[in-house]
Design a protein around this nucleic acid. Sequence first.
DNA 1: CGACGCTTTGACTGTCATCAACGGCCGTGG
DNA 2: CCACGGCCGTTGATGACAGTCAAAGCGTCG
Lengths: 238, 238
Amino acid sequence: MQDQAPRKTLPKLDESLLAHLPPFSRLDRREIREILDQATSRRHDAGARLFNEGDPAERFYMLLDGHVRVVRVTPTGDQVTALHIPAGQLLGIARAIGRDTYPATAVTASEAISLGWPMHLWDIFVARYDGFATETYKTIGERIGEMNTRIVEMATQQVEQRVANAVLRLVSQSGRKVPNGIEIDFPITRQDLSELTATTLHTVSRLLSAWEKQGLVESKRKRITVCDPHALVLLSQS
Amino acid sequence: MQDQAPRKTLPKLDESLLAHLPPFSRLDRREIREILDQATSRRHDAGARLFNEGDPAERFYMLLDGHVRVVRVTPTGDQVTALHIPAGQLLGIARAIGRDTYPATAVTASEAISLGWPMHLWDIFVARYDGFATETYKTIGERIGEMNTRIVEMATQQVEQRVANAVLRLVSQSGRKVPNGIEIDFPITRQDLSELTATTLHTVSRLLSAWEKQGLVESKRKRITVCDPHALVLLSQS
DNA sequence: CGACGCTTTGACTGTCATCAACGGCCGTGG
DNA sequence: CCACGGCCGTTGATGACAGTCAAAGCGTCG
């Protein structure tokens, strides 16, 4: 694998990293310490792969910082982004859905930091830690909901509405307040957006240009700021 | 609800109904008896709804006979079919993914028979019966895979390929051997197929007509028979 | 400063949705 | 038994949306 950063076990990982995250929120310090002691932390460059579709699912991860795109590649080479995962969520949890290979590829959208555990700990975590299983299945439920929404959108909406929805979702998932509005807090290209919305980078570019002329958004290279979210919502529904 | 058939608890439900189905296959007669004794069996007319999107998830079901379409309806009234569920699978298992309302509506495609249990038994089943949880999560994993596949198909394939894929999937899921080929074993209209493939009934009709002229399929009212599966596979990949 | 990656814009084109009309099957009720 | 109405399917004409092709501008990084 070209992009594996070396794994380091940092003895000083702080309990506060995990304490407030849903899968671990019901645990006490001692339990969180146990979990951290078994974890491997890694830094990933932008564009690095945590794992590939079809690989044996040997580890599962908690994304501590950054963003990950979950991508599938077709036989013809087209990429389709299935999900966007923000910091604070588990990923690579194939075992939870009865799989022993990863169903998709995970690519970092920006520099990212992950904790990883060998998959054989999964069953132990589920059995031993209160709330871990419940919260995990909630996450899965939410992801199923997201996928469902995308299917419905792709089936019924025009490209403009889909792109508007995608931008709004990214903003609400990872928006950061800036002077002119709310900025999507990680680098994202027209190409990325087109893979999220099943269209082409050209069409996305045209749409963003048009929106910018109307004052709905501003965008620089790899950065998008939504200035008038309400107007975008209207667009996304027409 | 207009289409609730009366619930009957049939004392004579036979253990063999469940014994070979994955979620129950590791259980002994006594356990299966327990489970059956708590179940309510119901017959549903074609087009009946087992439950509606958004309803509180009060019961979960095992589909014993027939086929169910899992459908979402948009604010504008368009219907989109998210999944097709054949006999022998669990459905309405919102609790397994941490939800307390149903995420979609379940409509029978043909006459159907279900067993239903109150949702509060879910946690008990998971805790008490060996393999129940594991098999259930496998089912969820498969459904996630299916949804994923549909997203990728809708994002990258032409209508003709999508429809071909949908037909092939239905055939492999519920095909019945007949003299001229393999027939999809439940009634399905062009409209249904169009909701599965995000297109219109007109386009589906044109495609099926064209395929029929080429001898790939035969179709009567609500019935589709695939005569040359291999050719369809080729079509679905070009 | 050059090269590469990202973005923009214009012109053209094809697929597929839309509109419209009709034909046929099937169950129902007189 | 026949006539009717509703649902299902077919087919043609038209046009729009968005993909493809092509080319050039702009930022950033090495």
